[in-house]
């Protein structure tokens, strides 16, 4: 892979963009920062820069290095894969345009999930949480049973917002209460409970979901920092969902206490 160009030291030109990337071979390995100079092109985004490194893995000192490991897929901010910390803020690398970032651009992996390698973390816990709160609508079967219940457009407009959650982990990253010491489930799963509970059929299983949010790591551990809604790249009204679900759990709590 040694490329003729790479043997001579590459001098940064004004048209180069400097990236400083936090790297690590995974858990148990130490991490370090490595600098890269990437030739600028118009409308360049962070993913584009990482692709250039793949094609020519040479660092800022002109040394051959290993290509940076990162995740991406849709490149249009709907799959959530390429989430990382860019200049201190968790966001998707595909929609992070170089022109709008101050340089040098610093890339680091999310900190609230186990590190896999370089910029890749393991966000499996987010999917497990969806299972924990039973974020599905229990249908009788896939046989032809006619349409579902009618939904007023106003309700659809609200639930549609919630249904855009791409489990990217930005909200968890921004939440002070999601950390190593707490078991807090985080904002995303709570909003999904709001989504499913808002559906007439989904509401039939409402209590089971609320129950799941009432124990350890549940909704009570939200500290109301309100960072999540600001951080969400899809503008999902997470704090509103948390408030709505919180009310539902209170009502449910009181009712089940009365019925004891």
């Amino acid at each position: 892979m040694s490329n003729d160009k790479s043997s001579s030291i590459i001098k940064p030109t004004s048209k180069d963009v400097t990236f400083i990337i936090k790297r690590s071979n995974g858990p148990g390995f130490s991490s370090y920062w490595e600098e890269f100079q990437i030739p600028y092109y118009p409308n360049m985004n962070v993913v584009g820069a990482l692709m250039e490194i793949q094609k020519n893995p040479v660092n800022g000192k002109g040394e051959q290095t290993t290509p940076v490991t990162w995740e991406c897929n849709c490149l249009e901010e709907v799959c959530g894969a390429c989430t990382m910390i860019i200049n201190g803020k968790a966001r998707q690398a595909c929609s992070a345009l170089v022109d709008k970032l101050t340089q040098p651009i610093r890339l680091a992996p999310l900190t609230k999930f186990p590190l896999v390698k370089d910029l890749v973390v393991d966000r499996r816990v987010m999917f497990d949480n969806l299972r924990k709160v039973k974020a599905w609508i229990k249908i009788d079967g896939t046989y032809d049973m006619g349409p579902g219940p009618k939904i007023p457009p106003q309700v659809q407009e609200y639930t549609y917002e919630l249904s855009k959650c791409m489990t990217c982990g930005t909200c968890a990253e921004s939440c002070p209460n999601v950390n190593e010491k707490s078991k807090f489930i985080g904002p995303a799963a709570i909003a999904q409970v709001d989504l499913v509970n808002s559906h007439p059929t989904g509401a039939l299983m409402k209590e089971e979901r609320l129950e799941a949010l009432m124990g350890e790591g549940g909704i009570a551990e939200c500290g109301n920092a309100q960072n999540c809604a600001k951080a969400c790249p899809k503008g999902i009204p997470l704090t509103r969902s948390i408030a709505r679900v919180n009310r539902q759990t209170s009502v449910y709590g009181i009712r089940s206490w009365l019925n004891r």
Partner: peptide
Amino acid sequence: DLMDRMGVTFNR
């Protein structure tokens, strides 16, 4: 119909 029953937020 099936996707509707599964709760897809189709425009109304």
